[in-house]
Design a protein around this nucleic acid. Structure first.
Length: 516
RNA sequence: GCCCCCAUCGUCUAGAGGACCAGGACGUGGCCCUUUCAAGGCCAAGACAGGAGUUCGAAUCUCCUUGGGGGCACCA
């Protein structure tokens, strides 16, 4: 079969032309960053960096009603936390600024007016009430919803009268009413739409602000954007954008629609409302800060997101950002939507934690323990880190594993809990007393010194090592599950370890009458 | 409802007509290691949605069906 017959042949051609690569991530400040948005940002960034191009950050704040104070700062902080940087943006400026749409309003108004002058757009005076009623009617009659183009065909007299009255208006785009529009998607090939299905979209709202459709086209043009990498939910408005570029006489950037991320249930886009819980009952994070709060580390999040919709190849799952940038290829993005594989993030996060420099892990753990109400001695934390490092998947997991190292007050385990399987109270008490003597007599209190002494003690007592160690673990940590015993006691120190063993002995003495 | 997109193990994926009785990873189960819990090692189960075509040959190309997703705002 010849390449000419292959509809995806174009997908296999080079993705870039000779113009410099310039991509943008354009969030709207309506709240914290959504993880899906983060993925879009990442793929743009990988693409830019791979091609030696520019990453542009643009704030799309054209909806005054949904604007959230502080959101811009949160978004910038979130991106930086992940290690994403940008060459032009609201904070760093650039040649094609400003990079905040609310500061570019007159530009949009000018170009909207230009379209009206050239009969490519028109003023629409329909009230929101009329539009709502129209939609209602259409629904009742089971017709397709959509604007009926009432104002497109207003007579000059009517138009003049409405103008005279000063009726508020929006500007709508005159979509071709017949024929088809084809958009070339870098991942999917040509996508063709019947123009009769397309709408006369609003370009300029009655408050003078542009809609996404206008602002995005104007900005991408004037910011010299070469490639648009945006989420799949934009596919259906892509033909309107295509026609807008044509109306302006501008070249349209190349475009690729990235697949959306689905809920773990597989039902619908991942969203805050519907995400639900993991099998272990943990709430599934959706917003970037929720991942932070849940104890995920940025390099794991980045690696994880890279594996959703794209793959490194060579059967590798763990790789660095640098490697990703070197290898990133848009043509290998999987166009299919994917379920959010959260368990895989847990694993990957654990991988990154295990490979992390212990000093850095200590730095990351410090605020986690403090937030959990512990007063942390950093030097002790540094000693604790190697014990928790292989045992946690998220930073927060360190709290149940090692929080006891930092507890203000030691709360001893109930005497019952001290008794190990196949042992009784008297045996346990005896074991504790002898272990206490053994430990007290040690020349030093290092784990390496404790181990042989306690092993031989176990043998003397006719206990399995695990039984003796279990008793001591419960006595010194009051936890059934804890880091390895000797290292734990070493960090606790001899005095504190013996004190805790004494407490255990005392509590057992009240429980069991020692036999004569 | 209409338009559009998509379709390989439970999930994320490899797969560019012969290298595929389909490879990796997470998860799951088993075994080993072991001082509890982890980590680590080994092993196992597990998929080309269905049907027609094209071809000597199809996971891969075409069509239909089915299923899933996205969109249908003076939101982005």
């Amino acid at each position: 079969m010849g390449a000419l017959q292959d509809p995806l042949a174009s997908r296999r051609r080079s993705v870039t032309s000779h113009t410099p690569v310039r991509v943008r991530f354009a969030p709207s400040p309506t709240g914290p960053l959504h993880i899906g948005g983060v993925r879009t940002a990442l793929f743009n960034w990988f693409f830019a960096r791979h091609h030696g191009g520019a990453m542009i950050l643009r704030i799309e704040d054209t909806d005054q009603k949904r604007y959230v104070e502080n959101a811009v700062q949160l978004i910038l902080d979130g991106l930086r936390w992940l290690g994403i940087d940008w060459d032009e943006g609201p904070d760093v400026g650039g040649e094609y600024g400003p990079y905040v749409q609310s500061q570019r309003i007159t530009l949009y108004q000018q170009w909207a007016a230009w379209l009206v002058e050239h009969d490519l757009a028109y003023r629409c005076y329909c009230t929101p009430e009329r539009l709502a009623a129209l939609r209602e009617e259409q629904r009742a009659r089971k017709e397709d919803p959509g604007y009926d183009r009432h104002c497109r065909y207003l007579s000059p007299d009517e138009r003049a009268r409405l103008e005279m009255e000063g009726a508020p208006f929006v500007i709508r785009f005159k979509m071709p009413v017949e024929g088809t529009t084809t958009v070339h998607d870098l991942l999917r090939g040509d996508i063709t739409f019947d123009n009769r299905q397309l709408q006369d979209l609003v370009l300029l709202k009655s408050d003078g602000y542009p809609t996404y459709h206008l602002a995005n086209v104007v900005d991408d043009h004037f910011m010299r954007i070469s490639h648009i990498l945006r989420a799949e939910e934009w596919i259906s408005s892509a033909p309107v954008h295509r026609n807008l570029y044509d109306a302006f006489g501008w070249e349209m950037p190349q475009i690729a629609h990235l697949p959306v991320i689905l809920n773990p249930s597989g039902k619908g886009k991942l969203s805050k409302r519907s995400a639900g819980f993991t099998e272990s009952g943990r709430k599934i994070p959706v917003l970037l800060y929720e991942f932070q709060e849940a104890g995920y580390v940025p390099e794991a999040i980045v690696n994880f997101l890279t594996n959703v919709g794209w793959s490194f190849g060579d059967d590798r799952e763990v790789f660095s950002v640098q490697e990703t940038i070197e290898r990133f290829d848009l043509r290998r993005v999987n166009p299919a939507a994917s379920v959010f594989p959260i368990e895989k993030l847990d694993w990957l996060n654990g991988v990154y934690i295990r490979e992390m420099d212990p000093q850095r892990l200590a730095q990351l753990l410090l605020p986690v323990f403090e937030r959990a109400g512990y007063r942390v001695d950093f030097d002790r934390l540094v000693r604790v880190v190697p014990l928790v490092q292989p045992r946690i998947k998220t930073l927060n997991d360190a709290i149940p594993v090692a929080g006891f190292f930092f507890a203000e007050e030691f709360e001893p385990a109930p005497p019952d809990a001290l008794i190990q399987p196949k042992m009784d109270a008297a045996q346990t008490l005896d074991a504790l007393r002898q272990a206490r003597d053994t430990l007290a007599a040690l020349p030093d209190f290092s784990a390496a010194t404790q181990e042989p002494a306690l092993r031989s003690l176990a043998q003397q007592l006719g206990l399995k090592p695990g039984q003796l160690f279990g008793v001591l673990r419960m006595a010194t940590t009051a936890q059934q599950v804890a880091p390895p015993l000797f290292e734990t006691m070493e960090i606790l120190g001899r005095d504190e370890s013996l004190r805790r063993i004494d407490l255990a002995i005392a509590s057992l003495e009240t429980l069991a009458q020692p036999q004569d």
